[in-house]
């Protein structure tokens, strides 16, 4: 079974990205596939590699990058939402890419479930 995940809020201000990450990690541990995570609205801020949280805090962007590297997850940032918020290719963390909303719709069409995390 394949799960698509939609993240609608940025890191730190809301728990959404943390909940989505822990959900994705657990799904993979249980043997499910998470082929893609889509970042929309302020969720696009999760993609910035410029964030430098304190050492004793989690690094939300970096741990998405690592989960993606370890399990081949496609981390897609909505181009229109990113352009509104100044997220460009130049600030993307590893394994994030910018693409269109069609990538979100495709998750709904192709995968078995779509789970949304937001405010």
């Amino acid at each position: 079974m394949q799960f698509g995940i939609l993240v609608n809020e940025g890191p730190y201000s809301h728990q959404a990205s943390d909940s989505a990450y822990l959900f994705a990690r657990s799904a993979i541990e249980k043997g499910y596939k998470v082929p893609r995570v889509f970042f929309y609205h302020d969720g696009v801020y999760n993609a910035s590699r410029l964030a430098t949280p304190p050492q004793d805090d989690r690094n939300v962007s970096a741990r998405w990058s690592k989960l993606a590297a370890d399990h081949g997850i496609d981390l897609v940032v909505c181009v229109a939402a990113a352009q509104r918020r100044g997220i460009t290719d130049g600030v993307l963390g590893d394994n994030f890419r910018i693409s269109g909303l069609g990538q979100l719709v495709e998750m709904g069409i192709q995968y078995d479930r779509l789970v949304t995390f937001g405010d």
Binding site: V79, S99, G100, G102, Q103, E106, G108, I109, Q110
Partner: peptide, 16 residues
């Protein structure tokens, strides 16, 4: 944008 390519891949599947 890659949206047009996606549409070809998904031809035939209609979900609610």
């Amino acid at each position: 944008m890659s949206d047009m390519d996606d549409m070809d891949d998904d031809a035939g599947i209609v979900k609610k």
